[in-house]
Computed example of a mutant assay.
Amino acid sequence: MDENASSEAALPFRTTLRDGRRVVLRQIRAQDKAGLLAAFHRLSNDSRYTRFMASMRELPDAMLESATHPVAGREFALVAVAGDGEAATIVGGARYAAGPGSDTCEFAVTVADDWHGVGLAKCLMQSLIGVARAAGYRNMEGFVLASNTSMRGLARKLGFVDTVCPDDGTLHVVTLGLAGVPGPA
């Protein structure tokens, strides 16, 4: 994690990625709808399928509304923004959601195609893990396509256990215990 970020994932913070580009990680805002929609439209068909596990040409209004209005106490979402002012662009995001009373949250992460391979997904996940841990969740899990080897590899590097989904061999469940000691950096 960037030296500007605490172990509790203090947001917002600016970080420099492996290729020298800088982003600000911050909590999502209601006014991010247009930026989030633009980010969705910049994703390749493969990236959309990998993230949503379905072919999607458009982001449904209900999903966009939910994405920009996380339910307090059960959901959290953050975005990575490149540039400043009018030139600011959402280039990635991560979120978790949990059922009422659950000690396990489910994560999702999305990174713009031209930002793959520079450490952005790792930054997003480390921040999300820190926020979930600080919120008192004991476990984090994600459902990842078996073919998404880059996400599964990142999850393993972050300490997640990767198992085949018992109900669907095309999916893997990656799980991380959040209680106790902080995860790997």
Results as ranks from 00 to 15, higher is better:
E3W: 05
N4C: 08
E8Y: 12
A9S: 15
A10S: 15
L11W: 02
L11N: 04
L11M: 11
L11C: 06
P12V: 05
R14S: 13
T15P: 02
T16Q: 13
T16P: 03
R18M: 11
R21Y: 10
V23C: 01
R26M: 08
R26L: 05
Q27Y: 01
Q27P: 08
I28H: 05
R29C: 07
A30L: 04
Q31K: 09
Q31P: 06
Q31L: 04
G35V: 08
G35M: 06
G35N: 07
L37F: 06
L37G: 08
A38Y: 04
A38D: 15
F40H: 07
F40Y: 06
R48Y: 07
Y49D: 10
Y49L: 12
Y49K: 05
R51N: 00
F52R: 11
M53Q: 15
S55A: 13
M56P: 00
L59G: 09
P60D: 11
D61Y: 03
D61F: 00
A62M: 09
A62L: 12
M63R: 03
E65M: 04
S66V: 00
A67Y: 04
T68R: 07
H69Q: 07
H69K: 05
P70S: 08
V71M: 03
A72Y: 01
A72H: 00
G73P: 06
F76C: 08
A77L: 09
L78E: 11
L78Y: 12
V81Y: 03
G83Q: 05
G83C: 02
E86G: 03
A87F: 00
A87E: 14
A88Q: 02
I90A: 07
G92M: 10
G93N: 10
R95L: 09
Y96E: 01
A97H: 08
A98S: 11
G99L: 13
P100R: 13
G101A: 02
D103K: 13
T104F: 01
T104Y: 00
T104Q: 13
F107P: 01
A108E: 02
A108H: 06
V109I: 15
T110R: 03
V111G: 02
V111L: 01
V111T: 10
A112V: 02
A112G: 14
H116S: 07
G117F: 05
G119C: 11
A121D: 01
L124H: 04
M125E: 09
M125I: 01
S127H: 11
I129N: 00
I129C: 02
G130V: 01
G130W: 09
A132W: 05
A135W: 03
A135S: 15
Y137E: 07
F143K: 11
L145E: 11
A146I: 00
S147I: 08
N148Q: 13
M151H: 10
M151G: 12
R152V: 09
R152Y: 04
R152L: 15
G153V: 14
A155G: 01
G159I: 06
V161W: 05
V164T: 15
V164W: 08
C165V: 08
C165M: 12
P166H: 09
P166C: 14
D167V: 04
D167W: 12
H172M: 07
V174P: 01
T175F: 03
T175A: 14
V181P: 14
P182K: 06
G183Y: 05
